[in-house]
């Protein structure tokens, strides 16, 4: 990304960030709450339009060619973005149908450690179960660019291992990963690059796993 900036109302949430992540690489973005991590990721996901500068992935301007690149990007965001009144399986079935992909949904549910064949709506799920379901959706998409926003919150140790393992498997296949977190501990093993943000700006870049 070059000289990226995005404003929210009267302030710059991300101000002039220059960052290069190699294709297939993994980068961890750390910083306090409100330092612009989520905005940075949402810009990468083409959920937000950059107000200045641009983000390119594989030589393609993400925002300008968003129709083209959106199928290859997945954002595991803070909000799980599920339909509360549908069951886990129905949620996944909806997304699979809309994406035109056919997958063994029961298998997918089992892989993220959710009970198969249950009809209770997502509304009754705990925060950790929702995140597992959101992870299953990411696996459904098999993205080339994976954006993780605080991927470990609300998850039990088993769930965290699941995320690490899933991300690791995707990386094996060449997926580029960007992780935003304020607890660098677990994500550190995944990432060889690390940037630290303060008030919307990158203040420190370090290479090699910390």
């Amino acid at each position: 990304m070059q000289d990226l900036a995005r404003r929210f109302g009267g302030r710059w949430a991300v101000a002039r960030v220059d960052l290069a992540v190699p294709r297939g690489g993994a980068c961890m973005v750390t910083g306090a709450n409100g330092s612009g991590k989520t905005t940075l990721l949402r810009c990468c996901a083409t959920a937000l339009k950059p107000h200045h500068g641009q983000i390119t992935f594989g030589g393609v301007d993400l925002w300008r060619r968003r129709a083209l690149v959106r199928p290859t990007i997945a954002l595991l965001s803070h909000a799980t973005r599920l339909y509360e009144d549908l069951s886990a399986q129905e949620n996944l079935a909806t997304w699979a149908r809309l994406g035109g992909v056919s997958a063994d949904l029961s298998d997918l549910l089992a892989r993220v450690g959710l009970p198969v064949g249950r009809q209770d709506p997502v509304r009754t799920f705990s925060a950790g179960m929702r995140r597992r379901l959101a992870l299953a959706r990411v696996l459904l998409k098999e993205p080339e660019l994976l954006l993780l926003d605080e991927p470990f919150t609300a998850l039990d140790p088993e769930g965290r291992a699941l995320v690490l393992q899933a991300v690791g498997a995707l990386r094996q296949r060449g997926t580029t990963v960007l992780v935003a977190t304020h607890v660098p501990g677990e994500a550190a093993a995944l990432c060889e690059q690390r940037v630290h943000m303060e008030a919307g700006r990158v203040v420190r870049i370090s290479e090699g796993s910390a």
Binding site: R7, W12, V195, V203, I205, E207
Partner: peptide, 15 residues
């Protein structure tokens, strides 16, 4: 309602 002009680019320290 608009944001102030962008600040100058910042050179991050490399570690």
């Amino acid at each position: 309602g608009d944001a102030p002009p962008l600040p100058e680019p910042l050179q991050p320290e490399e570690v």
